[in-house]
Design a protein around this nucleic acid. Structure first.
Length: 643
RNA sequence: GCCCACGUAACUCAGUGGUAGAGUACCUCCUUGGUAAGGAGGAAGUCACCGGUUCAAGUCCGGUCGUGGGCUCCA
């Protein structure tokens, strides 16, 4: 055992006997210097896999360098170094705003007359490398807010001044490396040389404090890692993710297209995409029927008065398309399906004995989205919700929520998603309905999730004004999480539309209404599916399950017969009988991610068989065509999970 | 909507003021080849749209539309 020399941010170091643990050594070093925060430890000159951060209460929290928190600290420091580089390069032209670490990296917002472009990256990265090489220590100091305001005001850093003015503490901490001093809570790496590998990634605009009334700043995004290999792995992952991008695959696999002459945010489903969608829809409808739902169809427009009654004109008009006049009456495109389902409810008188009523519809709605928000299939202007409305009595609420969650998770699982983030959004400041009802239904949502064993976070005050809700987000390959499922209790519409049922007591009561969508919208869900499977869909939802191909023209007639037989047997098969080499045909089928290729040469023709090549390159022994059809059927049945 | 970048053939992209290009796809011909691209030829573009600068604009400037990365919002 050798003695250990421990160094911390600011450059202090001390040698301790080997018997002292690094943690204790550090504690002593830190307390001696009365530092409130420090991070990272150099032990005998080598980085140890340990760092610490001290909270204001001087509680020592060891953090491994390789941990999320260690990485976070590194990236935060990298943001400071980037800001220093920018200030050194562009000096007085630039005001700094804020620069936190985020998932996968960090950013820093700048205010500059001329925006940055990726062309500036090389210069900034070069300057950062110089700063790293200079081994500048990160030094912490504290000062009263008033003093800090004066300090930053003198330098014209108006954003820092604004931040300081909003702070309710008396003392703030500043961090300095080289000549660059930034308002910061810390902690940071001991000195700039700790930043071994970093890269600027992109430039984007963002509003000061996220408010579009504020000035637009230029945001530089970057990332940093403890070693170059990890950075490389990260950049490779970004490349991989790009290859899975549903917009790229959607084009390559001929699933959907968006065209200027049709309009932005409006999806055209090509035959393969339409096939995929139909398979999903069929599965969805069958599963809903099995779970006691009834299917509805409703129109796309309704009289404007309907939207007045529903409150959409008051609360949602920004998202609605302008009215059209039909026989001197105003009509509007539907942004939601609910009022139509309520129309169906109100067409009859109802008894408590009918409940729960579960009505579902693949309902296409149109919502105005700002051009900058549109994104492939993920964010569009016309989309089809897998909508349902459940009408029930208060005592049925919890069971119904449970059933919905159960069906929800089951359907997500069938599509291969078993990881998601779940949020429970509670009563906002402005709301309708009684407190009693809110408490009752929030409790019902909680109970149902607990019963299902579903872990969730609470989003306080984020509920819709008409009721609490559960949101389930699934993550795509780029790490973005997409809200798909949503379950919302509604106290508003039953009231507005004067919905009633006759209770056991013979009196009229108001039903509880639940809105829910499991996939959210078919567009978004299919977008997520494309990225999830990188376009290589499981057999049961593959638009083209098999492609038959001949080696020479001599097998063309046999191929046509097998093709016809397999189509009749329910296999989604296409044929490639072109005068091309087998390699060429396989390559094309491979690019289109067709699960099975049926290869037909003289041997297969003689024996009346097909040779099956799987998408992964494996071959199955030759088999009669109908045996292949059975195999496909069995594999599909395994894929479609029925609950 | 806002900031930045981009828009050239069906697709992927080159082309920095002087006669519109490549690869793939498509069509024709040759080739009949057993597991990821055989060969030759042909057709294909109002360089997103509108306006301006210039002897000359795909290229420079302005506007419009669209796309991408973000901000905001959301299924």
């Amino acid at each position: 055992m050798t003695d250990i020399t421990v160094s911390i941010a600011g450059g202090e170091s001390k040698t301790f006997p080997a018997a002292v643990s690094a943690q204790d050594a550090l504690k002593e070093l830190v307390s001696n210097k009365q530092r409130k925060q420090a991070v990272a430890v150099l032990c005998n000159g080598e980085p140890m896999d340990l760092s610490v951060s001290l909270t204001a209460d001087a509680v020592l929290e060891p953090v491994t360098m390789k941990s999320e928190e260690g990485l976070h600290i590194l990236r935060h420091s990298s943001a400071h170094i980037m800001a220093q580089a920018v200030k050194e390069l562009y000096g007085q032209d630039v005001k700094v705003a804020i620069g936190p670490a985020i998932e996968d990296g960090y950013y820093y917002d700048f205010d500059r007359e001329v925006s940055f472009t990726p062309d500036d990256f090389a210069a900034i990265e070069g300057k950062m490398a110089e700063i790293v090489k200079a081994r500048l220590p990160f030094e912490r100091c504290e000062m009263p807010v008033a003093e800090a305001i004066e300090f930053f005001d003198k330098q014209g850093e108006t954003y820092k001044v604004e931040l300081l003015k909003d702070m309710d503490t008396e003392i703030v901490s500043l961090y300095q490396q080289g000549d660059f001093i930034d308002l910061c809570r810390g902690p940071h790496i001991p000195d700039t040389s700790w930043l071994k590998s970093f890269k600027l990634l992109r430039v984007a605009g963002s509003y000061w404090r996220g408010d579009e009334k504020n000035p637009m700043l230029t945001r530089l995004y970057g990332t940093a890692f403890f070693d170059k290999k990890e950075l490389k792995r990260y950049l490779n992952r970004l490349e991989e993710a790009k290859k899975r991008d549903h917009r790229k695959l959607g084009k390559q696999l001929r699933l959907f297209t968006i065209r200027d002459e049709i309009g932005p945010g409006l999806i055209l489903w090509q035959p393969r995409g339409a096939q995929l969608r139909r398979l999903i829809e069929d599965y969805w409808k069958d599963e809903h029927y099995r779970h006691g739902y009834q299917l509805l169809y409703t129109p796309h427009i309704a009289r404007q008065d309907l939207w007045k009654t529903s409150g959409h004109l008051d609360f949602y008009s920004e998202n609605m398309y302008s009215a059209m006049e039909i026989d001197e009456v105003a009509y509007q495109l539907k942004p939601m399906n609910c009022p139509f389902h309520i129309g169906i409810y109100n067409a009859d008188k109802h008894s408590y004995r009918e409940f729960p009523i579960r009505w579902c519809e693949l309902g296409t709605v149109y919502r105005y989205e700002r051009t900058g928000a549109l994104h492939g299939l993920m964010r569009v202007r016309g989309f089809t919700q897998d909508d349902a409305h459940i009408f029930c009595r208060p005592d049925q609420l919890e069971d119904e929520i449970f059933n919905i969650i159960d069906l929800n998770l089951h359907i997500l699982k069938t599509f291969g998603f078993d990881e998601y983030d779940v949020y429970l959004s509670t009563r906002p400041d402005k709301y309708v309905g009684s407190d009693e009802n809110w408490d009752l239904s929030t409790e019902a949502l909680k109970q149902a999730m607990d019963k299902k064993g579903l872990a969730y976070e609470i989003d306080p005050g984020e509920g819709v004004f008409y009721g609490p809700k559960i949101d389930i987000k699934i993550k795509d390959q780029l790490g973005r999480s997409w809200q798909c499922s949503t379950i919302q209790v509604d106290f508003n519409l039953p009231e507005r539309f004067e919905m009633t049922y006759t209770g056991a007591d013979g009196a009229e009561h108001q039903p509880i209404m639940i809105h829910r969508a499991l996939m959210g919208s078919l567009e978004r869900f299919i977008g997520v599916l494309i990225e999830h499977y990188a376009g290589a869909f499981p057999l049961w939802m593959a638009p083209e399950q098999a492609r038959i191909m001949n080696i020479t023209d001599d097998q063309a007639e046999y191929c046509k017969k097998v093709y016809a037989d397999l189509r009749k047997a329910g296999v989604r098969i296409e044929q490639d009988l072109r005068n091309e080499k087998l390699n060429y045909k396989i390559r094309e089928a491979q690019i289109m991610k067709v699960p099975y290729m049926l290869i037909i040469g003289e041997r297969e023709k003689e024996d009346g068989t097909v040779t099956v090549r799987k998408r992964n390159g494996d071959n199955l022994p030759p088999m009669p065509p109908l045996e292949f059809a059975d195999m496909v059927r069995r594999e599909c049945e395994e894929g479609i999970k029925i609950a």
